[in-house]
Design a protein around this nucleic acid. Sequence first.
DNA 1: ATTCTGACCTGATTGC
DNA 2: TGCAATCAGGTCAGAA
Length: 325
Amino acid sequence: MPELPEVEIVCRGLNDAFVGHRLTKVIRRFAQLRWPIPDDLEASILGVSAGAGPRNEGGSEAGSEAGGRADGRAGGEAGTEVRTEVHGEVRTEVRSDAGVLRSVQRRSKYLLLGFDTGTLLIHLGMSGTLRRLTAAEPTRAHDHVDFVFGEQVLRFNDPRRFGAILWYGDSEGPGGSHHLLRRLGVEPFSEAFSGRLLFDATRGRSASIKQVLLSGAVVVGVGNIYASESLFRAGIRPTSAAGRISKPRYERLAASIRQTLTDAIAAGGSTLRDFVASTGQSGYFQLQCFVYGRGGEPCRVCATPIRAIRQQQRATFFCPSCQKA
DNA sequence: ATTCTGACCTGATTGC
DNA sequence: TGCAATCAGGTCAGAA
């Protein structure tokens, strides 16, 4: 599963390949992910009310060979009927650029695809991938959804179905207020993230520091691998009570988290199982881990055998010599 | 309020 | 070779 660096790589890939292009169709082959994929997703994105009539359904693909260039007058293009509700007043207008993907952003491990009508939330869960393919590419097992952008397709595949595809319409407020995003901690690369924040947020907490990092309530994007790696670089035992770690050590931890994530992004995201970039390329080399997955092997710094334990049913790795309680 | 457990799923790997 | 048990990068909902 993608941790933050992988999601960041996918986010950049989506920006390069799809922003400015127009979504023409959503093909939903299997709807049951962590939550059901809305059945009116295509209509929501395109701004067409769900009951707008079956005549519109099939034949509206006429202008899709234009390859994403929208400046031409598009002679025969009828445009798409868009209905917006403003203060209870329903307006109908014809918009030829309905469905154009305006932006792709990452918040924690959520991908936020911005359309004029609202925000598409995508989470890759543990095993989700997004690939960029041509529309003719045959589907494989667990290819649940296609987002068709003319000739190219963004295809969502997720064997374990822990991922999510949700819609957050503009009428529901800005996407950032979605309940899944509202309680998230700060971004690790934001100004707000610091050793002081970690220190202040953990006073009185008896939970282990690794548990606090994984919870995402203070800082987001530190998954199971990078929690172990960051704590190693900071010289802190994963089992230490978060409330008993000093401010200087938290300063070091904040820097370690940033550095670990930066290194992983630079490496193209660590490739463990089935991560594939949105371009469909795989074969990124894996970030060289100091401790993760190296139980029993010698520490790369001091040669002491790395210890493997379990915390909250998750694998944790640390060097008993380099990392102090 | 904080902390912990179970649940959601399939697939790869391990051990008998 | 086959089959069962175990594990996997996330995170939500609910119980203790």
